[in-house]
């Protein structure tokens, strides 16, 4: 079953067209990795999916579970079950991490027709995930991402993912700036989310993260289009021959 169906997507940032008729289908329960050279449009693709204000979609469509989401507000897309783990999560001084996350979770629960969690219930849930990710308890009371190290920010993104339980998870360069221990902890968190139903879109420059999160498909994105799709074996070829070898195949 296809969870996310991106059809002939064309998108601009400012006046510059970045995505030029991109087609991609994410299968239910599968891990899709997107690789590509700098400036290919990887981050623009992730921003287009979640409705970032920088990106304007000028052609094509994005269907989530068969429904077009391209005109939805970012919060509506999130409540539907789309989650982007940011490459550089922004710091928000003064917004308590736990308060923020409870507000987000309860917004989603209300959208799904479920009861909101009270503070005590939420705290129990948050604490259990904190220990799984090896995060310090003071993360509960600290301001959102403020003063967090690179590793702490990425773990906090995974914490949000574990709590919000989205259906489609986009990981934009989740491995950047992580040391081995942090990479392992983050990967374990991601692997825990694999349940045969959720789809993952892993955007990366390097193969390192793919040693921890085994992809089912590798897509090569160049000049705003997917130019090749293959299995995990493509990673070795890219490592060996670089992205130019893919251009040569087209």
């Amino acid at each position: 079953m296809i969870t996310l169906d991106i059809q002939n997507l064309e998108a601009k940032i400012g006046e510059k067209q970045i995505l030029k008729g991109l087609n991609l289908q994410l299968e239910e329960g599968k891990v899709h990795a997107i690789m590509g050279p700098n400036g290919a449009g990887k981050s623009t693709l992730s921003k287009a999916i979640v409705g970032h204000y920088d990106v304007s979609i000028v052609g094509g469509d994005i269907l989530f579970k068969g429904k077009s989401i391209k005109d939805m507000e970012p919060e509506e897309r999130a409540k539907e079950g789309i989650f982007l783990s940011f490459q550089n999560p922004v710091e928000v001084p003064g917004v308590n991490n736990a308060y923020f996350l409870r507000t987000a979770l309860n917004a989603k629960r209300v959208h799904e027709g479920k009861e909101e969690l009270n503070a005590a219930e939420f705290l129990r849930l948050m604490k259990s995930h904190l220990s799984e990710l090896g995060m310090k308890p003071d993360m509960i009371s600290r301001s959102l991402n403020e003063g967090f190290s690179g590793g702490e920010k990425k773990r906090n993104e995974i914490l949000q993912m574990l709590i919000l339980e989205p259906d489609v998870i986009i990981l934009d360069e989740i491995d950047s700036g992580l040391d081995i221990d942090a990479l392992r902890a983050v990967s374990e968190g991601i692997n825990k989310m694999k349940d045969g139903k959720r789809s993952f879109l892993v955007i990366t420059h390097y193969s390192r993260i793919l040693d921890y999160i085994e992809p089912d498909y590798i897509h090569v994105l160049k000049d705003g289009k997917i130019v090749k799709t293959a299995g995990a074996e493509l990673v070795a070829q890219l490592e060996e021959e670089g992205y130019d070898s893919i251009a040569n195949e087209q």
Partner: peptide, 16 residues
């Protein structure tokens, strides 16, 4: 706008 978008991307309405 980056902070606003970050909160919205987690399901929090623009007003909230």
């Amino acid at each position: 706008p980056q902070q606003l978008f970050y909160l919205q991307s987690r399901g929090i309405s623009a007003i909230e």
